[in-house]
């Protein structure tokens, strides 16, 4: 094969790969952009491009008390679930990460299993279980259900952070006379903090966005935002939802930027 042919061949490969990659990236971003643009429409439909621009649907959103009520519930449940996930998950991660025993391995698989199992099956199972033990659906049952499906993110990220911790640091600290608690507070915790924070961040987002568990464990008094939005969209295509969606997209981008600054989220997720 001549050099010229070889160059052409290499070029064709690079062009094809780059074009697909760029198209795929556009495919990923464009839906979010479209929602933000359409939320500023002056019309009554989701027509794109919008006939004119206004902020009327944001005013509408300001008065949509049902959506606000659901949003408040979602935030409350996400905060409690994240808090519980961090306390239980970090303790469990400490226990299993440095142990090579079979028990530790089995516990690890158990704690990770909610990520693989269809969450809808767990949602139904949890509903049946709570009705069997006579616990009516409430914010409490939602927090319990969400914690089970969110805690794996905290465990996984904390275990990953602990794996990078040098055991010699702990030994040196002990040799210098520090108690185990002191070593934990002053050496271990600061070093694994970014891992815990990024795990907590993902746990919070996935609780806030949870559908399969909330679907079964909420009722009218404990309405959750994703379910409320879904039911609104099933009925009619409301532009208020576009305004709410664009608020959520912008909030997510802002949170991501903060997380990237503080914990280097992107490097953490790509290993």
């Amino acid at each position: 094969m001549s050099r010229r042919q070889n160059n052409l061949e290499a070029l064709s490969f690079q062009i094809v790969m780059t074009v697909i990659a760029v198209l795929a990236l556009i495919l990923i971003v464009s839906p979010s952009l479209v929602v933000v643009i359409v939320s500023f429409t002056s019309g009554f439909s989701l027509k794109f491009p919008p006939p004119g621009y206004s902020t009327r649907w944001y005013v509408e959103l300001w008065n949509a008390w049902q959506l606000q009520f659901a949003a408040r519930n979602s935030v409350v449940v996400a905060l409690w679930s994240t808090g519980l996930s961090v306390v239980l998950g970090v303790a469990a991660a400490l226990a299993i990460s440095r142990s090579k025993t079979l028990t530790a391995k089995l516990l690890d698989s158990l704690f990770m299993s909610p990520l693989v199992l269809p969450a809808l099956a767990f949602g139904l199972a949890a509903l049946m279980f709570f009705s069997l033990i006579g616990l009516p659906v409430s914010l409490l049952t939602l927090v319990i259900g969400h914690t089970i499906v969110c805690v794996p993110y905290v465990v996984r990220n904390t275990v990953a952070a602990l794996a990078q911790l040098e055991p010699t640091l702990l030994e040196s600290s002990a040799i210098l006379g520090a108690s185990r608690l002191y070593t934990f507070r002053r050496i271990v915790l600061p070093l694994i903090r970014p891992g815990i924070i990024s795990g907590a961040f993902i746990a919070f987002m996935s609780s806030f966005d949870n559908v399969p568990v909330s679907l079964f464990l909420r009722d009218a008094a404990t309405d959750m935002l994703p379910i409320r939005m879904w039911q609104d969209l099933e009925g009619k295509l409301d532009v208020t939802i576009a305004a709410l969606s664009s608020v959520l997209i912008i909030a997510t981008v802002a949170l991501m930027a903060i997380m990237e600054r503080t914990t280097g989220l992107s490097k953490r997720l790509t290993g």
Partner: peptide, 9 residues
């Protein structure tokens, strides 16, 4: 971005 945005959105 899509991983962290609400699935309904």
């Amino acid at each position: 971005l899509p991983l962290l945005t609400s699935v309904v959105v």
